[in-house]
Computed example of a mutant assay.
Amino acid sequence: MIRAIIIDDEPLAHQVIEHHLQEHPDIKLVAQFYSAKDALCALAKSSVDMVFLDINMPEVTGLELIKALAKPPQIVIVSAYHEYAITGFELNVTDYLLKPVSAPRLDQALNKVRDRLPKYSATNANYITLKVDREKRKFDLNSVEYIEAYGNYVKLHQAQQVTLATATLKQLSEQLSHSFTQIHKSLLVNNQNVISISHDHVELNTGTTLKIGKSFKEIAQTLL
């Protein structure tokens, strides 16, 4: 379980993050603060794994809070202002989100947090949440053989089942870079399913053969 807190002086920002976190049962929201000053006092007494942190707050700013922590947890900045992004990354924040935060963008940030917390990686579910029709659906990434672009949608191929979800291949390529590799302008393949590679095709352990795009041949050869 990843212990998280929110530090933001805007109640609506808390509500948005709380709403999105409903799709992430491995993230436990243990406290919420409306000022960085109050949060600093609490963090001095007990530690957490990650913080959703606003920047522009009265008395103590989010950036000042980071600098005041001897051993900062994973920090995900959530701000209405993009101009602090460079400073944030210089302070080694895990990600920088712009308000209003979308569910896919938060999913991406949380995956980065999980990647930086190896003690949790073995126990956390390896999944992604995507919109299918009018509902959100969770997909076990271990069961997804490959993902195919379909306009502003993607097709997730799982055994004999194909699901159309709202997302772009570019978004998923960035979000799933730790376990999927793009081998064609319209294909992402699950790394663990690849059993052989030829000059222009990869073969999966299910017997499926996928074509390698010309500009992706070099990266495809690194799969084995």
Rank of each mutant, 00 (worst) to 15 (best):
E59M: 12
V60W: 07
T61G: 02
T61P: 03
T61W: 01
L63N: 02
I66P: 00
A70R: 15
A70W: 02
P73I: 14
Q74Y: 06
V76F: 09
I77T: 10
V78N: 03
V78Y: 07
S79C: 09
S79G: 08
S79R: 13
S79N: 08
A80V: 01
A80F: 08
A80Y: 09
A80G: 15
Y81I: 00
Y81W: 12
H82Y: 08
E83C: 01
I86D: 08
T87Y: 06
G88Q: 07
F89I: 12
F89Y: 14
F89C: 01
E90Y: 04
L91H: 12
N92Y: 06
D95E: 13
D95L: 09
L97A: 02
L97M: 06
L97R: 05
L98D: 13
K99E: 13
P100G: 10
S102P: 01
A103S: 09
A103D: 06
P104N: 08
R105K: 13
R105V: 02
L106V: 02
N111V: 13
V113I: 15
R114I: 06
R114K: 12
R114A: 11
P118H: 02
K119N: 11
K119G: 05
A122T: 03
T123M: 09
N124W: 02
N126M: 09
Y127C: 15
Y127S: 13
L130D: 13
K131W: 11
K131P: 10
D133G: 02
E135M: 01
K136C: 03
K136L: 08
R137D: 00
D140R: 13
D140L: 11
S143E: 13
V144M: 03
Y146A: 04
Y146I: 04
Y150C: 07
Y150V: 00
G151W: 04
Y153T: 00
Y153Q: 01
Y153W: 05
V154R: 12
L156W: 10
L156T: 12
Q158R: 03
Q161F: 04
L164D: 03
A165I: 00
T166G: 00
T166H: 15
T168R: 02
L169I: 08
L169S: 10
Q171L: 05
Q171T: 07
L172K: 09
E174N: 06
E174Y: 00
Q175Y: 04
Q175P: 00
